[in-house]
Simulated assay, not measured.
Amino acid sequence: MTHQGSCHCGRIRFEVDGHIDSALSCNCSICQRKGSLLWFVPRAALRLLMPESDTAVYTFNKHVIQHRFCPTCGIHPYGEGKGPNGAAMAAINLRCLEDIDLDAVPITRFDGRAL
């Protein structure tokens, strides 16, 4: 299934393929503040509908995750990094997808503060 997503103002627009079977809620210093619900997919499943240069990037700590956000409205629709096996991954903020019933998505809590 293909899902459509965007930031609030629409500057960052994307499509992502996959079946949403769960979300991750992390309590690390950035995720807690953003309030995102993350769905992890292979990076190849994410297609940007605008130039990547339209996004701003924030990294911290070990600088291995690129937290992408809109420089206009400030919304964080996705991040990029590598999975445990070294494959390129995208962390999609489910709150930025259209027509998603978040109440129907099982949420796993992750203790990112403990890392």
Rank of each mutant, 00 (worst) to 15 (best):
residue 68 R to N: 14
residue 46 L to W: 02
residue 2 T to I: 12
residue 55 T to M: 01
residue 10 G to P: 06
residue 30 I to K: 13
residue 101 D to E: 07
residue 30 I to C: 11
residue 65 I to R: 13
residue 5 G to H: 04
residue 32 Q to G: 08
residue 82 K to H: 14
residue 40 F to I: 08
residue 108 T to S: 06
residue 62 K to S: 15
residue 115 L to R: 07
residue 72 T to K: 14
residue 84 P to F: 00
residue 10 G to I: 01
residue 42 P to M: 10
residue 44 A to M: 11
residue 17 D to L: 06
residue 40 F to C: 06
residue 87 A to P: 03
residue 74 G to R: 06
residue 91 A to H: 06
residue 37 L to G: 04
residue 4 Q to M: 04
residue 113 R to E: 15
residue 63 H to I: 01
residue 10 G to D: 07
residue 43 R to K: 07
residue 67 H to F: 09
residue 49 L to R: 10
residue 5 G to L: 02
residue 58 Y to F: 15
residue 53 S to G: 09
residue 17 D to F: 04
residue 107 I to N: 03
residue 5 G to V: 05
residue 101 D to T: 12
residue 74 G to T: 00
residue 87 A to T: 02
residue 62 K to T: 15
residue 70 C to N: 05
residue 114 A to N: 11
residue 108 T to A: 04
residue 87 A to W: 04
residue 50 M to Y: 08
residue 32 Q to M: 00
residue 108 T to K: 14
residue 38 L to S: 11
residue 41 V to R: 14
residue 78 Y to K: 05
residue 109 R to L: 00
residue 15 E to T: 07
residue 112 G to A: 12
residue 107 I to R: 09
residue 69 F to R: 02
residue 39 W to D: 05
residue 80 E to V: 01
residue 88 A to E: 14
residue 37 L to P: 01
residue 5 G to Q: 12
residue 37 L to E: 08
residue 4 Q to G: 00
residue 82 K to R: 13
residue 104 A to V: 09
residue 107 I to A: 03
residue 55 T to E: 13
residue 46 L to G: 09
residue 84 P to A: 05
residue 86 G to K: 05
residue 31 C to H: 12
residue 20 I to S: 06
residue 89 M to L: 13
residue 74 G to M: 07
residue 78 Y to R: 12
residue 97 L to S: 09
residue 28 C to P: 07
residue 54 D to R: 08
residue 73 C to N: 14
residue 41 V to N: 11
residue 90 A to Q: 06
residue 2 T to P: 03
residue 72 T to F: 03
residue 24 L to S: 09
residue 61 N to V: 11
residue 83 G to F: 01
residue 91 A to S: 15
residue 90 A to N: 04
residue 23 A to E: 00
residue 112 G to E: 05
residue 63 H to S: 14
residue 42 P to K: 14
residue 14 F to R: 03
residue 22 S to P: 00
residue 14 F to D: 02
residue 89 M to C: 02
residue 26 C to I: 10
residue 63 H to L: 08
residue 27 N to D: 14
residue 57 V to E: 09
residue 50 M to V: 15
residue 32 Q to D: 03
residue 84 P to S: 06
residue 104 A to T: 14
residue 17 D to V: 08
residue 103 D to F: 01
residue 91 A to C: 11
residue 47 R to C: 00
residue 32 Q to H: 12
residue 75 I to F: 10
residue 97 L to Y: 05
residue 98 E to L: 00
residue 48 L to H: 09
residue 7 C to Q: 01
residue 97 L to G: 08
residue 6 S to I: 01
residue 83 G to Y: 08
residue 31 C to K: 06
residue 13 R to T: 14
residue 71 P to Y: 13
residue 17 D to E: 15
residue 62 K to G: 01
residue 69 F to N: 03
residue 102 L to M: 02
residue 55 T to Q: 07
